[in-house]
Each structure stands twice: as C-alpha cells, then as structure tokens.
Amino acid sequence: MFGPAPLARTWGVKLNMQVPAPVEYERATSLTEVFDLLERYGPESRVIAGGHSLLPMMKIRLARPEVLIDINDLTELDYIRIDGGELRIGAMVRHATLMSSPLAGEYYPIFAEAEAVIADPIVRNRGTVGGSLCQADPAEDLSAVFAALKATVVISGKSSSRTVPISEFHTGPYTTVVGPEEILTEVRVHLRANAGSAYEKVERRLGDWAIAAVGAMVRIEGGLIVEAGIGLAAVRAEHYSAPEAEQILVGSAPSDELVERAASLAGEHCNPSADQRGPVDYKRHLVKELTTRALKRSISRALPEGA
C-alpha cells in the first residue's frame, strides 16, 4: 500500500521532531476512490491504513508525504475467505483478525503463531496485513510467513490488477513493486492438503523486532516432502526466503538429519548484519536453530495424526 520509504539508519539530524510535518488528508471509501485520489495527487501521496509504520516515520520526518489517503473505510478489503482453492486475505485485514481467524488457522497454523509475536496486542488491533507487507521492513514477520507459504499478492490499479508471486514482490529493504498509482489489495495462499506450517521467532523482548525469525511450510505425500517453503525475517535473506534449504528438502523423506542440513543451509545463505539485537554469528546460529524447530513442527503437522 505504501510506496518506497527511505531507510532509517540513525536518529541523526531528524532527532526529536516527533510531530508529523504538515500534510493533506483525504479519506477514501472505495477502491475506485483510492485510485482517483492516487491519480490526482501523484507520487507525493501515500496510502495510510493502520499507520503503525508510516506515522512513526512521519513523526521523525523520514517520511514527508504531501497527502495521506486514508483507506480504513475500505471494508471491501477486510476479508479472509476461501476462493478458487486459495486462502484469500484482504489487505485491510488487521493483525488481530488474522491471528484469531479460524479459517486461516485451520489451513495454516503459521498465521496464529506469527501474529502472536508481531508487535503487541494493541498494535495488532490496528496494523494491517497489507501495510506490513508494503512497509517491507527487513524484519517484518508476515513477509517471511508469506514467503514460506509461497503466496501471491494482488496489486491493483485503476484499470487493471496483476498478481505477483511473493518472491518478486520485494525489491529491497523498504521497497516493493507496487507502483505509485497502485495498491496491494489481497494476498493469496494455495490450500494444500497434507501440509504443515510453523513460525519461530526470537526477540529480545515481547514487541521488539525479531533478532531472527523463521517460517516454514512443508507438504508431504507418500512419505516424501513434495513442497517446502522457508521464510526468513530480519536476516536480509533475499526475498525473505531460503531457496537452497527448500531445494534439498523436496523429494526426500523427512528426517532429523535432513532438517539439520536444510537448517544449516538457511543459516549459511542468509545475510544478517550486526546490530544491537545481535552479532552476525549469533543470527546465523539462530536461523539454523529456528529453521530446525519450525521445520520439525511443520513436518509433524503435515503427517497424519499419530504418524
């Protein structure tokens, strides 16, 4: 939903503004209206939903849109439903809704597990699925979740919509393929039989961004892993994913040794940087450890009861 945002590094010269710069405000009540407003105001306008990423950046004036287009009235994007063999999640679904959705949880326990560790309960009441994805923060959890689930996102513009695989959605930290006159409207996840999923995250404290987090999904048929997804957050994995690790899983029977190898690959192929959450060696270790845990739990969920 949001366009590109500058990368926050230090508080630096933008210290202590803490109130947004002047901005115009428009409220859209339908998608058509959103596109009209985006067209009218051009690239200096920004769509705002939950606001939990954009407003803090506006307060320190790292983001200075000229116009805010409030889409909180777009109830048409607030849905979780099954359609065409897919779980379809509207962009305006709040984190709290996704977390407690029986429908999403029935197919993918990863949603509730990930949502339970995203920010805190009050923020989850407000923040949206679309907003999180479009913020494209490298530590953002849902990006890793949808990477693990190999989701597709729907990006809509005034005259057309397009679907983009999640692996092509992010173009870098804080940047996505969403164009200036487009918004993300939906995320789609294939419904999979015999699949299991799980999310693992370590944070310094509840509500902190992840030191590292791993989402996993496996589908098992005839005793073999036929599909695997591993999503990584906060470790600068390209497209939040670990393709090398996924590849060695597919076609093999699940075993502790296989999981171990995949987890090692995930740890090696990500690209974490040191910050106050931890040094690089610890983050790689964590990716390995959490990948192991997430995969094991996914596998046990994919296997039939008692297997």
């Binding site: 803090p56 805010l68 409030d70 009050i122 923020v123 009441n125 407000r126």
Partner: peptide, 8 residues
C-alpha cells in the same frame, strides 16, 4: 483499544 499517538 488503539494507541492514540499513532492515529491522526
């Protein structure tokens, strides 16, 4: 419940 510092 929402955090009113992050709502306009």
């Amino acid at each position: 419940p929402v955090k009113s510092c992050t709502v306009l």
